[in-house]
Design a protein around this nucleic acid. Structure first.
Lengths: 226, 226
DNA sequence: AAATGATATAAAGAATTTATAAAAATGAGG
DNA sequence: CCTCATTTTTATAAATTCTTTATATCATTT
């Protein structure tokens, strides 16, 4: 099997060095760009499987790089950001970033996110069945199983669960969720989400107050994980 | 009534053991093959009603087994696969597999899918007799038994019940049901459905107000379960 | 530790969907 | 033409789901 290629766009040399060592030790091919312009060029010439994009670049903002990338690049973009830049992250995710990682990051988590992003490239759509531990979603039958029994979900609950599960491992912002489930007119009704995430957790989680599947990403949105 | 025969083609001994126990306890006759070649031989000699075929076999790929089977075997083939092999699954369905199940599977679902696969066997349609708990549907005689007595169903009631039972375990939308039973012109007449589901429940359910077979899926449609 | 903002939960009211009964229409068989 | 079983309508009651409000809990920052 071919190595997957990761393009890292970041102006901090120590971070670049660290990422190179970590990624290569996990059998990724690494390409490095020290600024936004170089990043865009290398992305076009090498078509990496994943791009790690720092939000604070010297020549242009990470947000602008992301916008330009999104014109033609269809694979995953993971944002890197310092802490306390929540609004930047949400903005980036709303613009179509796949995921984000706050610096400093644990390497285990970094690798996990990259793998999950690559997996999504390969099989973006069109499986009608997912299994997550004791939970099974059968899209073609429109049925959700927990252990050996069928869960009774309302339409909204089902739609929400499917959208989250379809994007397993990835953060979805409040905006993205609201837009998908309730339509563009309801993107400010964050409370809807809280209510329905609550009822969903009661049904799919063994311990609804310590959820293992439907995770809150404070200030950003929710994430579904296996 | 004769037991249905299931041929399991899988090289993993624990899976074989599990399937044998589960299937025999549900009154199926089980034949086992540990590789593709043996599977093809046993399929030809025993003509099973359903074949469970693992995608990853030691001697030849499940896809090739499926291709060879399809030359002469007309009954249902259910593919078994580990997760994350969506492209394999799509390929298998393209080649004519009836259904697929991702490992690990819940036994309840497995049984449901095998039953529904048997029901779909074209050659069985002539003498088809489906049994769900205390309910027996005889397609050729157009007769439905509940416990030991014959139910008197009208044409529409019978058609509706058969269509639902044929799709046991999956939700059928109002649209699908109306289109099938009343034709494309009546797809907005949801009230027809409510009336007939009501009369059907009175006849087939022990407690029509807490149905166990004919389940309402609010806002979507109805589902038949055994 | 207090204050702030974000999230969770419960519960009421509104809106929609479903169930049931019963009346009107249809149509086949005598 | 009449009768009876069946289907189609109509009306209304019951159940469910969605939205909204209120309050409690939790996380983060000072």
């Amino acid at each position: 099997m071919n190595k997957s290629t990761v393009l890292v766009i970041d102006d901090e040399a120590p971070i670049q060095k660290l990422l190179q060592i970590v990624l290569e030790s996990h059998d990724f091919k690494v390409i490095q760009a020290m600024n936004g312009q170089e990043g865009l060029t290398l992305a076009a010439s090498h078509l990496p499987d994943v791009i790690l994009l720092d939000l604070g670049l010297p020549d242009m903002s990470g947000q602008d790089v992301l916008l330009q990338l999104k014109n033609w690049y269809t694979k995953s973009v993971i944002m890197l950001s310092v802490q306390n830049s929540e609004s930047d992250i949400v903005q980036a995710l709303d613009k179509g970033a796949t995921d984000y990682l706050a610096k400093p990051f644990r390497t285990g988590e970094l690798i996990a996110r990259i793998r999950s992003a690559i997996r999504r490239n390969a099989s973006d759509q069109m499986t009608a069945q997912w299994t997550f531990k004791n939970l099974k979603i059968d899209l073609s039958a429109r049925v959700v199983w927990k252990n050996e029994s069928i869960l009774k979900l309302t339409q909204t609950e089902f739609n929400l669960l499917v959208f989250l599960a379809k994007n397993e491992g990835r953060v979805l912002t409040h905006q993205q969720l609201l837009k998908e489930i309730w339509g563009v007119g309801s993107q400010t009704e964050t409370q809807y989400l809280r209510v329905f995430v609550g009822t969903l957790r009661k049904k799919i989680e063994d311990n609804p107050n310590t959820p293992i599947h439907l995770i809150t990403e404070n200030g950003v949105g929710y994430r579904f994980q296996a």
